[in-house]
Write a protein that binds this DNA or RNA. Structure first.
Lengths: 147, 147
DNA sequence: CCCAAGTAGTCAAGCTGCTTGACTAAATAG
DNA sequence: CTATTTAGTCAAGCAGCTTGACTACTTGGG
């Protein structure tokens, strides 16, 4: 039983990795080859009303500097744009461009394509249980590069 | 429902990260402050009869060169040693030293300390279900740095 | 038995994505 | 209206990985 406990982290990491890789592959296959998984997680945060660089950094579990240059990269590639922040002239509101939204939709499609068969095999109540169980371990909101 | 599907990867990654971080903290607290999570995953592989650099690379999802220098680091710090391989003079068998075993035990303790309360809260049959469900997504044996 | 091809491991160089440190401009507190 | 804090960027550095090239040993086919 303890053996079972001990390889749970490995199992979890492995599952997460497999999922992320599969979705990333799906996104690339849809024509967005210049993006990495981290960008997708950024898009997920930006897709609700945008976000500041600081909020993005918080969400991605990295420094503001790192988030800033990630944004710079996305601006250059045309996926997001910096707008003046309506309530704070120091800050800038990062929002998705048309291309950013297109990519977000593609990512959603890819994710569903990967997750659907597996969710169907599991069944709804088992899926709900899994979500609930995972939520217990997860630190809300903070995402990080693992190991 | 699709919304639920879509944040499953985030949830998984988040949970995996939280677990890895917590165990890593436990290991450091036990006096092994010069190690990172990746080393722990290496130990897990080495603890069954040792392994070659190539096998380690495969297990950790990295190139042989990277695994080789990870081993070099662990040799320097006294956690593993290189032995001649019994069946192949090109290869070397990497095995844990006494200190390596001590760290492995400490890691197991830390992992159980972290996982136990959460496993208890879940209950045995729910835990078994979680393991089974995760196993479906996971690519067997291959571990990778996620995103 | 021997040679050609394949495999285990290491050395060296380079690069990517992150960090820490220092700074400017704007907001906020007292 | 100054003193402190906060948002963001610029610059430099670095850890952990990659690709490429090489040596030592093994394996398979004639």
């Amino acid at each position: 039983m303890d053996r079972d406990l001990l390889d749970l982290p490995v199992l979890l990491l492995n599952a997460a990795g497999a999922l992320v890789d599969a979705i990333d592959a799906g996104v690339r296959a849809r024509g967005f080859a210049d993006l990495r998984p981290a960008h997708g997680f950024a898009f997920a945060r930006l897709s609700h009303d945008g976000a500041t660089v600081g909020q993005l950094a918080e969400h991605l579990g990295m420094t503001k500097q790192a988030a800033s240059q990630l944004v710079e990269e996305l601006v250059t590639k045309g996926y997001v744009e910096r707008r003046p922040h309506p309530a704070d002239a120091r800050a800038r509101l990062i929002v998705l461009t048309r291309q950013g939204w297109a990519c977000t939709r593609a990512a959603d499609e890819a994710a569903i394509e990967v997750l659907r068969p597996w969710a169907d095999a599991l069944g709804p109540q088992r899926l709900a249980a899994l979500r609930a169980d995972l939520s217990r371990i997860a630190t809300p909101g903070r995402l990080r590069r693992t190991w």
